[in-house]
Amino acid sequence: MNLQRTNPTLYYLQRTAFYVLVIAITVYLLFPFVWAVITSFSKAGNLFLTPGAFLVSPKTLENYAQVFNNPAFQRGLLFSVIAAVGAVAISIIFGSFAAYALGRFRFAGKQVVMYIILAVSVFPQIAVLGGLFTLIRAAGVFNNPVGLIVSYLIFTIPFTVWVLTSFVRDIPGELEEAALVDGASPLQTLFLVLFPVMMPALVTTGLLAFINAWNEYLFALTFTSSNRTVPVVIANYSGASQYDQPWGPIMAASIVVTVPLIILVLVFQRNIVSGLTAGAVKG
């Protein structure tokens, strides 16, 4: 029954309520980011104005110039890229092999392995902080991007394996059978046949793992003393005195490190949607 024809008033009320709800949620989600952007272009003295006067106050690029001229921020960007890309690359490589084995082969203890992976992926970071700190110091990789990469693997590999395993299970077995008939080895089947099919899932898991590693704070704070990543550098921003909080540069630095993530999501949004919805409908 068409509600628009039977009861037009109720139909338009429902549509109006729906759009009002969508607008309210959109404003609620975007307002902090928009306010941060406005703050990043504002002078320090204008931050204490009333909201109306603050919005129309003169804007400047001074905060961004200060951020990009900060050697600590430059090093933080470099170390964040190294740690995040390294952790994601290793996770994708090992996660693909593990997902192929868990998704295609039957062996004793398979379910136990899956439950262990799931348990590790939801384990709180603070619970392993002490033991991991001791191992990293003993291995001589403290204050080194290698130590951060190793520590990030604790949450990137389980997440990658869990997501990719669900995707591999839904790949038709006929693809492997055809490759084996043509004389392909299991590794050739994985690299030449399954990897192209798994590309949406690889992009999705890789991007989500990259975001987690890029924004990680606790391990980066604990396992480094001078080679800090961007989140730690931003958290340690200080003003001319202990009573001065440089909100403008902090917001500018936050926007700078957020924009690359937004660009990546926009560029790979089709792959992300395909990877997240893969296997949701069967038959």
Rank of each mutant, 00 (worst) to 15 (best):
R137H: 09
F142W: 08
P124I: 14
I126N: 12
Y100Q: 02
A84P: 00
A138S: 11
G109N: 06
Q111E: 08
I136G: 02
R104W: 12
G86D: 02
A101N: 14
A99M: 13
V128Y: 10
V85C: 04
G86T: 06
F105Q: 05
F123S: 09
Y115S: 08
F94A: 10
S121N: 12
A119D: 02
S96Y: 09
I116C: 04
A139C: 07
F97M: 15
R104L: 08
V122M: 14
A83R: 03
Q111K: 14
I93H: 13
G86R: 06
A138I: 05
L129F: 13
V112I: 15
I136Q: 04
I126C: 13
I126D: 08
F142K: 04
V113C: 05
V88M: 11
L118N: 09
I126E: 12
G130R: 00
V113Q: 05
S96E: 05
I126P: 06
L102K: 03
F94S: 08
I90K: 11
A127Y: 13
Q111I: 11
M114H: 07
R106L: 04
I126V: 15
V122S: 14
A87W: 10
A108Q: 10
A98E: 04
Q111A: 08
A89M: 12
V120N: 02
A101T: 15
Y100C: 00
G109T: 06
G86A: 10
A87Q: 07
A138M: 12
R104Y: 11
F107K: 05
A138Q: 10
P145V: 08
L118A: 15
P145H: 10
Y115Q: 05
V141Y: 11
M114E: 03
G130N: 02
S96P: 04
M114P: 01
F123G: 05
A101I: 15
R104H: 08
L132N: 02
G103R: 13
A119P: 01
R106V: 06
S96Q: 03
I126W: 15
P124H: 15
A89R: 07
F97K: 13
L132G: 00
G131E: 03
P145K: 10
V112Q: 07
A108I: 12
Y115P: 00
L132K: 00
V85P: 00
F97N: 06
A138P: 03
V128S: 06
K110G: 01
A98C: 13
G95P: 07
F105H: 12
A98D: 01
A87N: 07
L129I: 12
I136C: 03
N143H: 13
F105I: 08
L132R: 02
I92M: 15
R106A: 07
I126L: 15
F97W: 15
S96L: 12
L102F: 11
V120D: 03
A108W: 13
A84S: 13
T134K: 07
P124G: 10
S96H: 09
G109D: 04
G130D: 02
G95N: 11
F133K: 09
G131F: 02
G109E: 00
N143C: 12
G140D: 00
T134Y: 03
T134P: 01
I136V: 14
A139K: 12
G140W: 09
A83K: 00
V141D: 01
A83H: 01
Y100H: 09
R106T: 05
G140M: 06
T134V: 07
